[in-house]
Amino acid sequence: MSFQSKNENKEKAMATPSSLASVAANARKPGTNTLGTNALGIGLEARSVHAWFGKHHALANVSLDFPAGTVTALIGPSGCGKSTFIRTLNRMHEFIPGAAMAGEVLLDGKDIYEPGTDVTKIRLKIGMVFQKPNPFPSMTIGENVLSGLKLAQLKNANKDDLMEECLVRAGLWNEVKDRLNAHGGSLSGGQQQRLCIARALAVNPQVLLMDEPCSALDPGSTLRIEETIKELSETMTIVIVTHNMQQAARVSDFTAFFLADGGPGEMIETAATSQIFSQPRDQRTENYVTGRFG
């Protein structure tokens, strides 16, 4: 594990909104993953996605591409539909009674909502980290990390190595390595969230959706997670919802700005992250990223 860029990151953590553009400019450029897009597939595409909760139209007409091996940040004020959108991307939206959606979500060009699709396979390929940590309290820490393998009935020859690797990547290894047999619920909130990240990594998803993964974390763990996100983007496509502009600027290649202006939430603008933070096309985006609004 390389911690070389830690100091650099600390500086970035203290960046003020006015210097966001320069942070974003320093961030990794898209398409620099070493594995090439073939191993990653061609990514995820949302086509005219709408979402409803009963009669409430929560999200309107969002079309967004997530090219393979990139990190896309979703930003926007509270209640604008970011979580709703991200949950349509791995078919978690449909668990809410009365929820409905329209449009298409294409994984490697195939619609994941197509009738006859094995939805468990879809969710295995499109992993998710929730806003609120939700480890399995009946399992130990170690079992939690490997729970995805068990749940999806996957085989892995070297479980101990995998467990350690995932916990290291999630920045939790040092804190739990001596008590892997303790219960998942015995960790602090931030530790639980990192455990959930480790759990999502263990099944090696093609796409990882993260809904404010750092909202319960301290700055140190947050940096660790950001490191992880950057490493993961070599082998995964990542979508991250965040309220932290600096975080969006630090980790993402592309940023999409969402806004609900009275009506359903919409995507106002999407572009390379550096552009969103330096010269957004839409006035509302500029107001939001400069903190003048929202």
Partner: peptide, 13 residues
Amino acid sequence: PLDRIQAAYALGA
């Protein structure tokens, strides 16, 4: 708890 059920589903269960 719903969030635990969802966590399991999200892992491809």
